[in-house]
Structures are given as C-alpha cells and as structure tokens.
Design a binder for these strands. Sequence first.
RNA 1: GGGGCUGUAGCUCAGCUGGAUAGAGCGACGGUUUCCUAAACCGUAGGUCGUGGGUUCGAGUCCCGCCAGCCCCGCCA
Length: 603
Amino acid sequence: MINLRQKLERQCKLALMRAFPKACDGGKLSGKPINPQLVRTNNPEFGDYQINAALQLTKILKKAPRDIATSIVTELTKNEEFASICDSPKIAGPGFINLTIKPERLIQELITRLEDNRLGIPLAETNDGKRITDPIIVDFSSPNIAKEMHVGHLRSTIIGDSIARVLEFRGHNVLRLNHVGDWGTQFGMLINHLKSVAPEALTKANAIDIGDLVNFYRKSKERFDSDNNFRERSREEVVNLQNGDPTSLKAWKLLCKQSRDEFQKIYDRLDVRLTERGESFYNEYLQDVVDDLDALNLLVKDDGARCVFLEGILGKNNKPLAIIIQKSDGGFNYATTDLAAIRYRLNPSPKGDGACRVIYVTDSGQSNHFNGVFQIADRANWIPTGKKIEHVPFGLVQGEDGKKLKTRSGETIKLKSLLDEAVNRAEFDLRRRLKEEDRKESESFIKLVSETVGIGAVKYADLSQNRITNYQFSFDKMLALHGNTAPYLLYAVVRIAGIVRKGGSLATIPKQLEFTEKQEWDLVKELLKFDDAINDVEEELLPNRLCNYLYELCQVFNRFYDQLPVLKAKGSSKSSRLALCLMTTNTLKLGMNLLGIPTLERM
RNA sequence: GGGGCUGUAGCUCAGCUGGAUAGAGCGACGGUUUCCUAAACCGUAGGUCGUGGGUUCGAGUCCCGCCAGCCCCGCCA
C-alpha cells in the first residue's frame, strides 16, 4: 500500500508541523527534519500503521510523550483526507499512535488492483514523473569458456535473473550481461591442444564437435602440467591470440561457440535470458585504462608491476594494498578488465552503454576485489554523479554437512546433474503420490509437473534465503511439500485453479465487495502488501523479501481456504471470495514469475 | 598479520529507516476430513538473539572490545 502510506506520511508531517511549528522549523534548520516515524505495526491489535514520533520528541519538546501524541492526533483528525483514510487514531502504550485503515478504503484499493493488470505496481519514474530510460546493467552468471557450469554458477544465475526480472517489471531497461571468462592464459593451452588433436577443425567449417569440453579441458591441462614443450608452445599461443593471428583466433572462436551452446542448454532449461559479452570485449579498452590512470598519477610501479595503492585498506607489512593494473610482463589482469568494463558501461552511447546503475551479482569472496576496483574507478572520476555501481554478494553453497558442496568423491557438482536430480526426485515423489491416490495422469503431465516442481524448488530454495549468508543445499528440504518451499506455493495456485474447475468463475470482477470474516480481511490486507514487497526487492536487491511475502500470502490464503467455503458461499459473499481468489492467484503467478518460476494449474 | 561476512529455538532460516509480548518451517507431542486437491489447517512444548561494554525514553537491529566459524589478501578470475 505504498500510495496510501505516502498519503498518510504527508498527513502525519502536516500534523506534526501544525502541532509543533517551532520544533519543526528548528529541525529544518539543523538539517534533521522531524520525521513522523510512520511504520507498519507488527501486531494487528495495534492497527495497520503506527506513528512513533511522539516518543522521540520528548527530549526536544520537553513534554510527556502521551501529551505529544495527543497533540498530533488532534491535528490529524482535523484533516479531511486523513479522516477519509483512517479511523480515529488511538494512543497506546508509552505514546504510540495506532492507525487503522478504513475497511471501505481497503476495498477500494483492492478493486483498483483487481482491474489493473500490473496489480498496482507502478512503473519506475524519476522524481519529476518521467520514465527512466537509462539502462540498468545486471552482470550475472558469468561461467568460464571451456568449462562446464557447476554449482558455483547456480546462485549468481538464479539471483541475478530474479533481480533483472523485478527491475524489468518495474519498467527499467535492463541489460543482462553474461561476463563470461573468454580470455586469458588458459586459452593458450586449449588452442594448442585443439591444434594437435583436431587440426582439421581449423581449416574446414563445422569439421568437429569437441563434445565433452570438460574432458578436453582436463586433457590439455594434464599436458600443460607435464610437458615442458607443450607448455612453451602454449605460451606462444597466448601471444598469437593476442596479436590477432587468424588461425588462433579461429580456434578460440570455435571453443567459445562450443561452450556457448552448452551454456545455452542450461539457460533454456532455467528460462534465463542473457546477453553474452565476455571479458575479451574489453580488450581494446585496456590500454586506455592504464594510460588514463597513469595520467591521473594513480599508477605506481612496484616490483615490476604497475599498481594502484588503495586508500584506507592495508595489505601486508602495513603497506596500502596494491591492485595490479599491468603485470610486469606488460599483460593486464582482471582488475584492468573490470575497470574497462565500468567505464564502458557508464559511458554514454555510442561509446558505451550509458547505464545509470550497474549491479554485479557474484559471490562474496569477491567483495575485496570489487571494493578495490570501485575505489579506483571513483578516484579516477569514472563514476558520474547520480550513477551507481554495486556489488550484490552472496554466500557459498554448502552441503548438509556445512562444508562446500561436493560430490561424494570430492568433485565439483555439475549444474546439469544437480538440476536432473531435483527433477528426478520430484518425479519419483509425484508417481508415488499418483499411485497412492489412484490417479491416472499422462506422461506429458508427469514430465511437465516434475520439471516445474524440480527446477522451481531449486530456484526457490536459493532465492528464499537471505543471499548474504552461506546457503545449505538440501534436496529434501527444497522439495518438501510443507514450509517455505516452491511446492507449497505452487499448491496454493493449484487450489485456486481447482475452484475454477469446480464452477467458480474468476472472469468477472464484482463491482461491490463485501467481507465479514476475519480470514477475509486478513487476506485483503496481505494482498495489498504486494507492492511493498516488490519495492523492497528493487531497493535492497534481496529477492528473499519477495519469497517471504509470497509464503505469508499462501499461509493466509490457506487459512482462508480451509476455514471458509468459496463455492458454497451465498450471494455477494461468494463473488467477493472469488475476487479474493482471483487477486491471490494473480499475485502468486506474477510474484513467482518475478522469481523465474512458472506455475501450474494442476499438480 | 590485514580485510570482509556470519553467529537468533534441537536443526534450517525470517526479522524491512532502532519501537510495544523476537517469528516461521522442519523435528517432537496432540487434534481436525459427509465439504472447492489433507501436498492443507488448528493447538502444545522449545530462545539470557555468541559474549562484555557503550549510545538511547527504548537495542536482535547502531558504536567499541573479545570469542567462534567461513571467505579473501600483487602479477589466476
């Protein structure tokens, strides 16, 4: 209820200014404007919102908090707009002012949203009411070429996608960038190996399918580690590639294409859309980074390498921490690439993306790195005022033993096999249930439900946890039918679809809604919190806020569903309850969609 | 040695500009189905919010110290 809340906030400020004009003027002068401290209550018995300002003002005003509260309430009730939104405010406890939204106002709000295909979520605008056109970049997923996607890419891909979806829905122009590792020293050995095992691939088109890239990578690494001659030729190959040698370039492109095709299978399955723009894209901008930092006198030669020493961050020996921009052999490394990327992304078109906000979704192990790089970009004045670059870190994926997730033999878990297992388990569970309930379903139904539940469970388990902390991966927990899981949420949607199948129509929205039961009002109020949840995700980039909301909505809905009949209700009660079902299913479908999880009609 | 993150019920986790009695789920114990998918709902038990200070009318939340765990720390990304 962002709009109602904003109106209330305005009325509260007005009331404060009228009740205590001197103190408010003083607050303005001192740069600390007096805030009504309007917050949502945590307990329904205190109404919907509460004003906490009275307690804080006791010192400034030298009055008892309840007296201050009385003065605020007096001013509030004089105001017509306030009176049209809230019942008369109540002073409670040491000086809280409890506000309750009028039921007719809640119904009005609900009807507005029922008729709005955006469910009351506004499009993002600037302060003066214009649409925001500058893109927001979300940099996520970022696997390495010639390697398979593994569990380490899971969180970035899922969290990044959800953040991008929420921003897109709010109307932002979102550029989803896949900053793949497609450059660097490892390509020397890969190209070298390719040339020796499949030279025909470099002369004919589509001559070869490398097939198992992981195996290919492993074999070339083995040779690199054991064969001096091979190692030497690999180093030369890196130079060839960087100098733009056509054959090396062709080999490189071939490897990239192979990887890209493999990645795409996973992205298709996860329904994640990405624009590939690998590290190599920034090659031509690297030298400028060095030159410009040098011109700004930020570069220092140390031990043969050219570095920027960070301010306020000490490394070993109590010396400022150095970030290497150019290696002693003249090569660049990842800090250089990231700096070039920052410049390109923030530079206006056509020399850049002209982004207003750049979001990096990577594991928290890179926090130090981004801290350093952002500081350098800032000191070089490469971040125009009003533009934001932010690291969105997330914790490790751990097994149920609390250690980094590995296979039993200690290897990294492939993303594909992880998804397969989730889907297989969902299928097994579904078949068992069908048998128990003596239901017959087609194979295509079983496949669809298993895939949706399995993949949805993996995504939801990840998203529903605060991303900052490490995340304990458990198939049993994510696929559980109870608790804060994808199956529980999916089931609520299915229940509503069941009502429709049994003769309830959600097609027409009644002009008048009538609610008499507590369970109905609880659901109304919960439904109206959706915009707050979306707002939270956009501001704090925490998708778990949306998950928590959807979960709570399901709990409130299930209580309603369990305790009140819908189809057997009479007259306006039936149509009003159907309207609640419609709003609930619309909210769940949209909410799940913003998490990247499709819903089902039956399961 | 330096830096970052985390520490909340037996377990996994929420806790939104500091606000009233710290919330879920799992697990445990007990109850509910002639009724829209019981894949649900209701109830009981379970917490000195790592620890010691400080700020505040008020601290799980902010500041400082300490303890524990995880991660990172110049020529890989």
